[in-house]
């Protein structure tokens, strides 16, 4: 191995990592430098106290240095390769639970206007979304043509709406609003 280059944030920024437009394998890209850094005088690895060593995920360690953090900041990774060329979207509300799934009223999110109704099957609902199926539950349904790394496929996606649970502050706020309104409103 040749003598590793002294690593500074400048030198990383000067490397045009995104020119090839390939997904960046961070470990691979920086392995050389990390190895190089480790071989350097320990003084060079002095980190400000607020930085932390973090294991980012179970698939591999990402060891951070201040320089590398700055470098990652500067790197703009390519966007998702998946996109849709033509999509029709609906907002569904379950109106009835059936033996095989549910019936729903659908609002056209593309063009608005009149509503539609359709039948959906339990087999179309992901395991994680199944607990969300109930009368009145809201979901997104889309039908479209997806480009997935070059090949086009027709896709139907059902995804239940996930909004935050009410907090006690939300409920308190509703109680306060109701009280204020009760004082302000007059009744005959």
């Amino acid at each position: 191995m040749t003598e590793p280059t002294m690593v500074t944030s400048n030198s990383i920024q000067n490397r045009r990592i995104t020119e090839s437009r390939k997904l960046l394998d961070i470990d691979k890209a920086f392995a050389f430098y990390i190895h190089g850094l480790k071989d350097q005088n320990e003084d060079l690895l002095k980190l400000p106290k607020h930085n932390q060593w973090i294991e980012a995920d179970s698939k591999g360690k990402i060891i951070l240095t201040e320089d590398r953090l700055n470098a990652i900041n500067e790197i703009s990774l390519p966007e998702h390769p998946n996109y849709y060329t033509l999509t029709q979207r609906w907002l569904g509300t379950i109106t009835e639970i059936t033996q095989d799934g549910f019936n729903a009223k659908l609002e056209d999110l593309n063009a608005g206007g009149t509503n539609e109704y359709a039948e959906f099957f339990s087999t179309e609902v992901s395991k994680d979304d199944k607990p969300l199926v109930s009368i009145g539950a809201v979901f997104y349904w889309s039908l479209g043509y997806a480009n997935d790394k070059g090949s086009v496929k027709k896709e139907s996606i059902i995804r239940f709406q996930r909004l935050p649970q009410w907090s006690s502050e939300d409920i308190d706020s509703a109680v306060d609003k109701a009280r204020a309104q009760s004082k302000a409103l007059k009744w005959l």
Binding site: H80, N82, R89, Y140, A146, Q161, L163, P164
Partner: peptide, 24 residues
């Protein structure tokens, strides 16, 4: 937050709404 899949645009909005609702 970045999304290039149109079917998920509303879901992205909901996700952001949810995140900042919890981080009031």
């Amino acid at each position: 937050v970045h999304c290039s899949q149109e079917p998920y645009f509303d879901i992205v909005r909901d996700l952001c709404f949810g995140i900042f609702n919890y981080l009031k």
